[in-house]
Structure formats: C-alpha cells, structure tokens
Design a protein around this nucleic acid. Structure first.
Lengths: 417, 417
DNA sequence: TTAGGGGTATCAGTGACTGAGATCCGCCAG
DNA sequence: CTGGCGGATCTCAGTCACTGATACCCCTAA
C-alpha cells in the first residue's frame, strides 16, 4: 500500500493558465446553451469584458470548436451573432468495463453518441486478453465511425472499483477475477495509441451528468448509480469529487435497515445486502413473484429477472410492489445519509437498472428524502432521473476525456510542479 | 423555504484576481511554515518566478503581514532571507455560540489566542438578549486585548445548525429555544461594527484545523467534532465543504448499531441515539458506573459526568471501559461511512468532549477504520487528534475570518457577478 | 434617408508575470 | 587578506492577457 502523501501546498497561477482557463469558461458556457450564445451574452454570463470575449471567441473559432450559427435579434441594434458548439470539433472514445458486458461509444463535442457497440466481456481470469479484446474493438469502432483520428482527444475507461487513480490501476474488483492491480490505463494507452484516463464507473456516470445531462448536471448533486452494485457519484460546485485514490462514492455499507439481511461485512441491513438488484430478485423468487431459482447471478440474468420484477410491480402484483416499494424506502435512507453529510440539493438517479425503477422511485423517493433531510426547513432536495440514458457509464467514460480537456476546473488554473 | 436556485455558470478570471490569488498563495505557504521561508524556497513551492515572489513579498511586507526574520545559509552564496508571518499583522474575533456556554477569542494572524473569555449563554427564548450580551462581551474583549481595532479583520460566529449560510440566519437549532430564523450575522455586524461571518460549529472546527492545526489540517480530511452532538467537518483539497446552505456534516442519523437504541427519527442505532455523551452517561448511570440519575442534561452537567465516566475507564473500571469501547466501535462505523463515501485518507478528532476520549479512541479507532475501509488495499487512513485544542469552535470562528480574507481558495480567482 | 441603439472589432493602455542580467553576500582557497 | 565562485535577490525590459475607449457595423423606427 502506498505511503500517506503529504499534500502539496497550493500552487500559484500565471498568464497562460489564466488565458487557458478563461477559454474553457467560455467554451463551457456555450456548451451549456444548446441554442448558442452571443458575445454580449457571454460577457454578461462569465464576467469578462466584451473584447476579451471577442479575442477568445476568435481562438475557439480558429480551433474549430465553435461556429457562428446565424444572427438573432428583433429590436434596434445590430443583430447578435450566435456562437454554438461545433459537434465535430472534438471526439472522445468511452469504454464502460462491466464484468458481464463492455460498452463502447464515440462521443462528439456536444455529448452525442456518434458510434456505439457492445461486447460480452471475456470470462476467465486473464486481464491481458480482456485488454486486447477491448483495444481491438476500439480500433474497429473508430474506423467504422468515420471520425478523423486527429480529432479524437482521447480514451476514457469507466471501471469497477476499487481503483488507484494515480497509478491508473484496477485493484481487485469484486466481480473481475484475476484483476489484481491491473495497470489498465497504461495498457490501453499503449494498445490504442490514445491518451487514456481511467476512472471509477460511478464517477464516470457523474461526469456524464455534468457534461451531457442538461440542467440536472449543474452545480452540486449526488448521482445515484443503480447498477449491479449501488454507488454514488458526488459533484460539488461543478467539480467531481474523486477522493484521495479515486474511490469516492462507496456507499455499499451504509446501514439502511436495522432489521435487514446480514451483510458480508459483519453488519446487517447494509445497502449491499438489502437494495441491490440481486437481492431484490432473490426476494421476488422467495415470495413467488418470479419463477424458479436464480442460480446464475450474472448481470444479464439478473437484469432480465429484475426487469420482470419491475414489470410485475407495474402490472399491480402486490408482492412485487411491496418489494420495489420497500427498496425505495431503503435507498432513500442511503440517499439521506449522503445528502445530509454533504448538504446538496439535488439527487440524480441513473445506471443500467434505473429505467425500470424510475417510475416507482420518482413517485416515492422525493418525499422520503424530504422527510429525512436535516435541512428541509431551508431548502428542498430535487430528485430526478438522469438526462443521459442507460449507457451513462460509457458516455461518462468519454466525458472524462472531454472534461479533462475542456472543463473549467479550478485546478486548471494552478501551475504544475 | 427558498426556491431551488439555478446554479450560476462558471465565471472567468482577470489580472487583479490573479494577483490577489497569488498573494494569498504565497502568504499561505509562509503561514504553513513556522520557521519561515525564503524567496527562493517560495518560488519552488508555489511555482512562480523568483521576481514575482519578490514583487509579492514586497507587497506583503508593505502590508505588514510578514517580516524578514534574519538570514540562513551555510554554503557558498548569499544567505537566504527568511520571511515569516507577522502575528500582529491581522486579528480576528471568534465566538462559539453553544446553548450552555459561549466562548470568545481574539486570534492573531498565526492563529494564536491573544485573548479569551467565556460566559454562560443567557437562558430563556429571547435571541435579542443573547445577541446584546454577545456584542457587549466582544467589545470588552477587544478593548482588554489591546489590539488595534483597525487590525481586526472581522468577526466569525460558530453556531449550532441548521443555518442558512446565504441569509446568515440560524434556523431552529435543537437546543436553542426561540431561535426561529434569527438573522445572527447581520445583527452582530450591526451591534459590533465588525464585518461578520456565521458558519456552522462543525464547519468552523474544520476551518480551525486547516488554519491552525498544523500538518493534520492540510489537504483532504474529515473532522469529527465530538460535542454535545456529533458532527463532522469536511475538507477536500484544502477547501472546506459547506454545502448548499452551509449545513454539510450532519451525521447524527447514520445507523451504526442495528441493535441500538431507538432514535427520535424513527430508526434505531443512529449516532444520535447511541454515541453522544448524553447517551453514554445514561448508560453509565444504568450500569452503576456513575451515581444517581442524571436529570439535568445541560452541557456542563453532562460534561462533568462524561469526564467522570472517562476517568473511570482510564482507572480500569471494566463497565466504564466497555461503554467507552463500544462507543469507539460505533463512532468508527460512522467514520467509515463518511471516509468511504468521500475517499479521504485522514480523520481528525476534536471538540469539547474529545480530550478525555482521546487516549482510548486513538488506541481503538484507527484499526477499526482500517478494517471498515473500502480502500484499505490502496491507502491507509490516518486517525489523529486535533492540533487546535478544546476551543476549536471559537478558534474556528475566528479562522473563518482569516480564511475568508487570506486563504487561497480557488473561488477567490473568479469574477463576481 | 437619417438617427439611434445594440453588437462587435480595433486600438492602445494596464496589470501581472517572467527571462535575462546585474548586484549583493558569504564561503573557501590561495 | 583577497579574489573567485555560487547562490540569493533585485532590476530592467519584454511578454501575455485583460480591458477602457473608440470606431465601425447593422438593423429598426420615424
């Protein structure tokens, strides 16, 4: 295990850093406005003078990241020239590595999926084989997409945790056999020739929300990732919280039901032992809602059974309704633990298992979260579904690259040592 | 309750902001080095050029915030001139409002307590009377301190939550009767003529640690505030997490014992119903460790009984040891919930009840937190006691002012709208 | 057709950082 | 005791990015 690092002191900033930061601020403002923004609007929004906006706009136009999308205006005065993001200005490749299925996307600058594919993750315990398969699929996807490789800013990987962000390694995830400190980032960088970033799957999902999620991805929020496991991404003031090693968002052992099932951690009633799809499916079998035993607990089998469970609940099966409802109560408790600790005012739900849960959960969870909020007299807590879709992991992986390259993170201003 | 605010987009930065930020970066580096730093050392640490360091050092010397503290060097070459923080360069007044006792400090630039006082918080349900009393005490303290009022940067208030940070109000804290949306910041600003900041007590404690806590106050950490209630301050990358309304750190309803006592929130085994001093004292009475019944549950009475309980444990009373030990196990679970969610690698304990817990807790909690860590294969989690002392709340309140004025927060770089 | 208002570009100035060179200071060798 | 050397700090002039003021452009309304 690594030595505890003495955090480096704050670094200063300089003129090139400042210019670079302001450029990303302007690009970000344009990115968040699908209809585009004029220079005078940009000046008002970001606080820089009109001619700074002109200077920087010129540079963005030269770099082909934005374009002039016509004029707008009805009163006296010169019509405004609308500046919009040029979707073909930059691309990123995203890969979501899941023990069962690996998803690939090529994303454009706006955050739209230009190309998509999905393969079954090779089994066994040979990470090298998996990496080779992934690299081959990436190359094929890029070729098929027709995208100019020079326009591809890089490759992002959403991986199951735990990870070591600084080393770029995956460290013994629960459902990936043989993945003992696998240097995934460097291996894929070498195999593909693309600049590569690895991040945890729930963090990638949160980045997807900030980049491509619309209004729900702004400011501060918690992203509840409903997957094979349940985790959360944390975004505070438009900046994703990753933590010391990249593993923030580990909530599997929050106790949400004192009377709940025993957990492998020694406690009982944890999120992991009461709320995850596999547990709900088992309860459904036990209650006779679903047929037979579910022995194969692979992702696809669980997803199929889980979808059936949700369909039963939607069709009015009282037992199925009770199972889903009870899980909503428990998930809401986990949410409250996090929202109370961080004092955020928005919770976004997403992940591969979210779609069939969304109707029930959005009906129940907002009120439960409100009741559990320590700040309910001060502000509401908005609970919404993701604006991104089910491939939030892979889209998020690609967004890691776009965020790294273009997001106006305050870290961008600081000199590197 | 307030409407949900649309988060404002990121603002840009400009030259004056940049200069101001770099000045605070240099001041911060000097502040963190009690022995002082030379210009060449500063250049290396913050990444700015030697003549920028010279320019900014000149300005700090002119503002009387630092001084040249002699020369150092043994080899060839001109000896280095050591620059040190001038403790008398700036002062701040801090007040920790507690339902039982209100503590006052005047803090100098280094973070040393220049003057200190304590009064019994007036009872009843008239916030106005409390405010008047506090203002009078502040004026007297400043006068007695002999500090030049022109050197006082402002007044910080550490208040029990919940608070509305934007409005500067205190919103119905559990143990302050009649405090229904009291505009504490503006009232005290007007009564004292000092620029005033209000923050939650646990957040103030965390700010104290970052400012005056030494190495344990750097980087990212969670500050466990052991008070009448148990809360936590959160610091990520040297920046305190306050949350949407200033109420981050609310952990009273994390479930840490599925078999624990019922809580007023409807659950059982919460931090609030199992770990707080009042609960431990009640258990001690029940177990015969302490005499009689504890009916008066005021702060001082609880503190006295709690000290007796800890003394009994330290003296070898097995029942007392069991009570304290069990609470350590439970507190460690709450800590793990937060450290896993945020992936931090340091936990700092402090608060008025910390001193007598420290020996037992520092013996037990590190290993428990390590076992409960999802990232134990990647990094350790350091568990330490505060470097500030018991008046961490009041010191933190004063540090709010110093932090607001001098800390190199990235927010300082951004233009205001 | 002209005036006016709003939007954008241009010009020259400002603020802060920085590369290069000068000056200062102390140690060490001759 | 003196001069050379290396390191620290200061000075000079240049660079970069932002900005106030002004000019130009464009459209509507009278």
């Amino acid at each position: 295990m690594t030595e505890i690092r003495q955090p480096s002191p704050r670094r200063g900033t300089n003129l090139p850093r400042m210019g670079d930061f302001n450029l990303t601020v302007i690009l970000d403002a344009i990115r968040r406005s699908p209809a585009g923004l004029s220079r005078v609007e940009l000046a008002r929004i970001v606080g820089l003078s009109p001619q700074t906006i002109s200077n920087i706009s010129r540079r963005l136009l030269d770099q082909d990241l934005i374009y002039e999308a016509g004029k707008e205006g009805t009163g006296p005065g010169k019509p405004r020239t609308m500046l919009r993001l040029k979707s073909s200005g930059m691309y990123a490749v995203g890969v979501h590595l899941d023990p069962a299925v690996t998803t690939f996307v090529v994303l454009d600058l706006v955050g739209a999926v230009v190309k998509h594919s999905r393969i079954k993750t090779p089994g066994g315990s040979d990470p090298g084989a998996v990496i080779d398969t992934i690299a081959a699929e990436i190359k094929q996807l890029v070729t098929e997409s027709g995208v100019d490789p020079a326009r591809i800013a890089g490759l992002g990987i959403a991986s199951p945790g735990p990870i070591d962000l600084e080393e770029g390694t995956v460290v013994d995830p629960p459902l990936l056999l043989g993945w003992d400190r696998v240097p995934l980032r460097d291996a894929l960088a070498e195999a593909t020739g693309l600049s590569t970033i690895v991040d945890k799957d729930v963090t990638s999902a949160a980045v997807a929300e900030t980049w491509a999620g619309g209004p729900s991805g702004a400011g501060s929020f918690v992203f509840m990732y409903m997957g094979t496991g349940i985790g959360c991404g944390i975004v505070l003031n438009d900046e994703v919280v990753r933590g010391t090693s990249g593993n923030a968002g580990e909530i599997g052992h929050i106790i949400v039901d004192p009377d709940g099932a025993p957990c492998d951690c020694g406690m009982r009633g944890c999120v992991k032992s009461t709320c995850i799809p596999q547990v709900l499916v088992a309860r459904a079998v036990e209650a006779g809602v679903l047929d037979g035993s579910v022995e194969a607990v692979t992702g696809p089998a669980i997803q199929e059974s889980f979808t059936a469970l949700c369909a039963a609940a939607a069709a009015g099966d009282a037992r199925a309704e009770e199972i889903i409802d009870h899980s909503a109560v428990l998930v809401a408790r986990a949410v409250s633990t996090i929202t109370n600790a961080l004092d955020v005012d928005r919770v976004v739900f997403g992940g591969p298992f979210w779609t069939c849960l969304s109707q029930w959960y959005l009906e129940r969870i907002p009120e439960l979260v409100r009741e559990g909020s320590a700040t309910r007299k001060i502000h509401e807590i908005e609970v919404v579904g993701t604006g991104v879709g089910e491939d939030v992991g892979a889209i998020g992986a690609a967004c890691l690259v776009l965020e790294h390259t273009l997001a106006p993170r305050s870290q961008r201003l600081l000199l590197e040592g």
